[in-house]
Design a protein around this nucleic acid. Sequence first.
RNA 1: GGGCUUGUAGCUCAGAUGGUUAGAGCACUGUGCUGAUAACGCAGGGGUCACAGGUUCGAAUCCUGUCAAGCCCA
Length: 1052
Amino acid sequence: MFKPVSSKLEVPSMEEEVLKFWKQNDIFTKTVELRKGGPEYVFYEGPPTANGKPGVHHVLARAFKDMFPRYKIMRGYHVSRRGGWDTHGLPVEIEVEKRHGFSNKRDIEAYGIAKFNEECRKSAFDYINDWEKLTDRIAFWVDLETAYVTFTNDYIESIWNILKNFYDKDLIYKGYKVVPYCTRCGTPLSDHEVALGYHEVTDPSIFIRLPLVDKPDTALLVWTTTPWTLPGNVAVAVHPEVDYITIERKTEDGGKEKLILAKGLLEKVFADEELTVLNTFKGKKLKGEKYHPLFTFIPPDKPAHYVVLADFVTTEDGTGLVHLAPAFGADDMSMSKKHDLPVLMTVQPDGAFVPEVTPWRGMWVKDADPLITKDLEARGLLFRVETYTHTYPFCWRCETPLLYYARDAWYIRTSQFKDRLVELNRTINWVPDNIKEGRFGNWLENNIHWALSRERYWGTPLPIWECTVCDHKEMVGSVNELSEKAGKDLSELDLHRPYVDEITWDCKECDEGLLKRIPDLIDVWFDSGSMPYAQWHYPFENQEKFKKQYPADYICEAVDQTRGWFYSLHAVSTLLNDSISFKNVICLGLILDSKGRKMSKRLGNVVDPWEVLDVHGADAFRWYLYTASPPGQDRRFSPELVGEVVRDFTLTLWNVYSFFVTYANLDKPKLTTVIAWSENQLDRWLLSELNVLVRDVTNAYENYDVLNATRPIATFVEKLSTWYLRRSRRRFWKSESDSDKGTAYQTLYTALITLAKLLAPTMPFLAEELYRNLVHAVDQFAPESVSLAEWPKYEESFIDEDLNRDMAVVTKLVSLGHSARQKANRKVRQPLAEAAFSVGSAVEGKAIAEFAQLIEDELNVKKVRLLDAREEAVAHEIKPLPMQLGQKYGNKFPGIRKAILGLNPEDVVHSLLAGESFKVSAEETDYDIQPDEVEVIVHAKEGFAVAEDGAYVAALVTELTPELVAEGRAREFVRRVQDLRKSADLAVSDRIELYVDASPKMKSALDVHKDYIIGETLSSVLKFMVPPANATKAEDEFDGEKLSFGFVVILI
RNA sequence: GGGCUUGUAGCUCAGAUGGUUAGAGCACUGUGCUGAUAACGCAGGGGUCACAGGUUCGAAUCCUGUCAAGCCCA
C-alpha cells in the first residue's frame, strides 16, 4: 500500500515535509558516511561573505554547486562538502564604518583598531542566519557546521606559511603601486569608492613642446590636463601602429618650427591653420627618440626622457603623444616597469610638492598648475593653453580631487610564472569552454604581478617585519616562528591588527633597530585562493586530509570570479605546488532582471529568493535555473518563469505519480524495483525511451553538461504523461488480462522510480517524495533516502532504436490524422471507416501495421493502412533535397533542381518506389538521381480528408455508414452520461442504473451499443424509459435528436 | 580603450559540419478531446533571425564592419 497521493500538490508544504525528514534522519551526514572508502570526489566551496542578505544569484550558484556532488554520491563517491566563509576585507569594514558614520581612516584609528576589528569580526556574520536558512531551504547540501572561516588564527597561519614559502623563493617584493589617493584623508580609495565621486570639472589643457635631442629644430607635441605631473615626467608614449606626422608651421615670432603629432589629430589641434605636412610614419619609428627634459629637479637614476611604445595611447584627444609620470598614473607606472624607467616622487603624501621642486615646494599640486604653465611659457615650451571639461574622481567623503599617486606596495611575482599558469590552465575543463582560452586564458597571458598589500585594518596581516634603522626584513611563516623571534609564547595571540603590530624584536643585522611589522594587510583574494590549504590548517595539521582533498574535482562560481577566486586559486596553487587546484569548473553567467538589466540594490530590481521559494518551492526554482539557458549565459529572471516550471513539469509528473498511486492502491499489483520485460509494445517503447534517457543523462553528468542532464527528463515526462499514459489509461482500470495490467503497472512504476533517481541531484524534494513513497512500499530493505540509493544503470538490451523511431512516426501520423479530422469537420467521437497514411520510407511504413490498434483507438477509425500508389487516387510530388544534391553537385544544383521539378512525377515515381534511380538532364548533362536524394510526397485525393507534412500524409475516409453513425451516437451519449456523473459528484467507482427516453432512431442506435454504454458508464442496466423522479436527470440534444436521461446511484 | 559573451515570435529559449519552408514552450484566438492533470490534441495569428557589406549555386549559421546590452580589465 502506498501513501495516498492527492492530485493537488502543495509544493511548499511537501518540501517542508521532506526537509523535516532529512533533518530528523540526518540524511546529509549519512550520504557522506555511507560512501566512506569509496573513491573521493572533491568539491570546493567558494566562500561567500555573510555580511549581506543572499540573493537570487546566490541561489543560482548554490543550485549548480549542489547537483554534481549529489550525482556523485549516487555513483558511489565519497563527497565531503565543507562550507566556508569569506570574512575579511573592505566590504566588511565599510559596513562597520557606515554604522559609525566614519568618513576616513583617521576616524577608524581614533576609534581604535582593536574595537573596530572586533566589530568587523561580528559584522562578517551579520546575515549568517539568512544564509543558513536559505542554504537549508534550497537543499544545498554543504557542511556549514565545520565550515572554514578565513579570520581564524589557523587559517591565517596557513596563509603566512604560503607567503613565507613565496618570500623564500624571492617571489615577494616591494614596489610602487599607483592608487587613487585622497591627500586630505591620507588614504587610497577602493574602486567602488572612486566610482562614487566622479564630477564634471574644467581643468587646464596644455600643449607643450619637447624638443628632440637629435633634431633640435623638431619637438614632440605633448598634451596634458595635469601640469603638476610634468616635473615627474620621464618618457613620452606613442602608439606603434598609429600614423604620425611632422608638420612645419610659422611661429608667432616669425620663425619656423617642426612638430610631431598623430596624423588623425591634425585638424583637431591646428584647425585650419596654414602649415606643411613634411612626412608621415608609424609611431614605432619614434621608438627611443630622446628629448630634452622639461624639469631637472630630481635627477633620474636610470635612463629617461625618450619615446616608448604603448598600446593604450589613443587618438581621441590631445596629440597622440602621452607624457609619462610613473608616480602619477597606472599606465605610466606599468610602462616604467616594462622599460625600467625611473619613478620620480615629486609630490608628498599630503599633496604638496617635495622640497626638491624648489619653485613650488610645499604647494598643493593643483594650485601650482598655473605657475607651472607660466614657467613653461617663459621658456618657450608652451604651445597652447586651453581648458578641458571632463569627469574626474573626487573623494566621496571630503570632495578633494583625487590624485593617482604611487604608494609603497608589496607584490607577488606572478608574471614570472605566466607560461606555467597558461599551461596548467589548459588542463582544466572549463564550462563553457570559451572561458579557458578566452576570458581566463587572456587574463593569464596578460598577467601582471599580483599587488598583494592593502593599507587597511580588517584582514590577514602581511607578516613582514622591517627594521626601523637598517633595511633588514623578516617574513614570518608561523606562530611558532613569531614566538621564537619575539622571545615569548604567542600561541594565544590574535593574529589580527592591532595585536600583531605590537610584536617587535631587536634587529640582529644592525644591532640598533627594532623589527616592526609593516602595517599592511593582504588582498582578501589571497585569503580565498589559499582555501585548499588553509581550510585544513595545512601544513601544520591534516596533511593526509589535504592530500585527499586536493585538487578539487569541481568548483562553480559566476563569471565575475575569473579575476577573483578562479584566478587566486589557480595562481596560489601554481606558484606553491606547480599544479592545478581544480579540474572542472562551471562558470555561471549573471542573473538579470526581466528587462535584461543587472540586479542591483540601486535599481531596486532585486528579487528576494524567498518570494520564489514561498510560492513555487525550491525544486522548481532550481529546475528553472538549470534548464532555462546554458550555464555560462546571463539569464533574465522573473518569479513567473519558475511558476511555469511547476505547471509544465512538476505537476505533470506529480499527476502521473498520483494516478499511479491511486490505481495501484486499488489493484495492489505485484511490483519489483527491478526493470522487467513486457510484451506490450507501448511498455517496450517506454522502457526503451527510459533507458535512452538514463544513458543520455548519465553521459551529460559525466561531461558537466547541465542542460542535457535536465532538459531531456522534462521531454520524457511529457511523453510519459501525454502519450504513454494517455494511451495506457484503459489498461489500468479495465484490462483484458491481468498480466497486461500487471506489466502496465510495472512499467509505469519502473519509469517513476527511475525518474526519482534521475531527478535526485536537481529536484531533490520531489525525487525524495517519489522515492520514499514508491520504493519503500515495495522494497523494505531499500535505502531510506533517494540520495542513499544507487544511480540507475541503463540496460542496453531495453533500448530499441527502431521502436523509438516507429513511435515517432506513429505520433506524427496521429497528429496529422487529428488535423485531417478537423479539416473534414469530423469529431473524434464519430468513428470513421478508415485512415490511410503515407510515410517517407518503407522502413517507416512498418510502424503503421505495428501500431495499428493504437492508431485506430487514438483516431477512432475502424482500419488503418498505407496509402497504395497503385490503388488510390493519389498524386505524387518529387522534391529535390538540397542537403544531398547541393553537396554532391554544388553550383549545378539549381539547374538540377529546376529539371527535377519540371518532370512529371508520375513518370519517375515507380522507379523511386522500387528503390531505383532516375535520370534527369540539365544544361545538356544527364544526372542519375538516387532515391535518397529526393523526397516523394504523396497527396491523396477524392473522398479523403487529408493532412500532410512533407512526406507524411494522413488521409481519412470521411463517408459515414449508418452503422458508424449509430456508434458515434452511442459514444456521444456515453460522454453526456459521464458529464452528468461528474457534475453529480459521483465517485469513479459508483455504479448506476441508467435511464434514457429518446426518439426511435436514437433508441435503436443506443440499443445496438447497449453493452458498450453499460460498460463505460458503470451501469447495471440501461432502461429505455423516462428517468424516475429520484434520478439525477438531464435534457440534451445532439445530431438533431432530443433526449432526456438520468441515473440512480446503486447503494451497496 | 582592450578582452570575452550575448542579440532569433509579446516572453523564455532551440536551431552540429552553410541546404532553399527558421522551430518549441508560455501567452493569445478558434476548435476538439477527457472520470489522473493546474491539463491534453488540432489549427490560426505573431519573425526584414540587431544592422550593413562580403564569400557562396545557397547564409540565422562563415568573414568584415557598425549598433545595442552584460561582465572583467584599463
